[in-house]
Computed example of a mutant assay.
Amino acid sequence: MTMQGKRILIVEDESSIVNVVSQALRRHGFEVSTVDNGDDALDMLYPVLPDLVLLDLMLPGMDGWEVCRRIRSAPESKGLPIIMMTARRDERDLVQGLGLGADDYIKKPFSLVELVARVKSLIRRTQMVQTEPTLSVGELEIDLEGQMARLAGEELSLSLTEYKLLRILAERPGQVVPRERLLSLIWGVYGGDTRTVDVHISRLRKKLTQAADDRAPAITALRGRGYRLTVEEHHENP
Rank of each mutant, 00 (worst) to 15 (best):
V48P: 01
V129I: 11
E232M: 15
H235A: 10
N19S: 12
E145D: 11
A216F: 05
P50K: 02
R225H: 05
R125M: 12
G188E: 07
V32T: 07
D90M: 09
W187M: 11
E145M: 14
S73K: 12
G97I: 01
A117M: 09
V137R: 08
M62D: 02
H235C: 09
A221K: 15
K107S: 14
E31M: 15
H200C: 10
Y46Q: 11
L49Q: 09
T209Q: 14
R125I: 12
K207T: 12
T161A: 13
L158M: 14
I219R: 08
M128I: 12
A87R: 01
V18W: 04
L55R: 00
A41F: 06
I186T: 09
D90R: 13
E12M: 05
A218Y: 09
V35N: 03
D143P: 14
S157N: 11
I10G: 04
A170H: 07
H28V: 08
M85L: 09
L204N: 06
K78Q: 15
P60A: 03
T2F: 07
V67F: 02
Y227G: 00
A218P: 06
R179E: 10
K164Y: 02
G138H: 06
K6M: 11
S121K: 14
P173E: 05
I142C: 09
L135I: 05
L49S: 06
K6I: 04
S159N: 10
P133I: 08
S157F: 00
V116F: 04
E91C: 14
E66Y: 06
P47Y: 01
K120W: 01
R195S: 13
L54D: 01
V177Q: 06
C68P: 00
Q147R: 15
S121W: 09
C68S: 09
T126V: 11
L144S: 08
T86V: 03
V95W: 00
P178H: 03
A149D: 02
G146D: 01
E139F: 07
R26G: 09
D104C: 10
V67L: 02
V67P: 01
I82E: 00
L165T: 07
L55P: 01
D90I: 07
Q147V: 12
A170W: 04
M84R: 02
V137Q: 05
T209W: 08
L151C: 10
G61L: 02
E91V: 15
L169N: 07
A218N: 11
S157T: 11
M58H: 07
R205H: 12
G79E: 09
G64M: 01
L42V: 04
E236S: 13
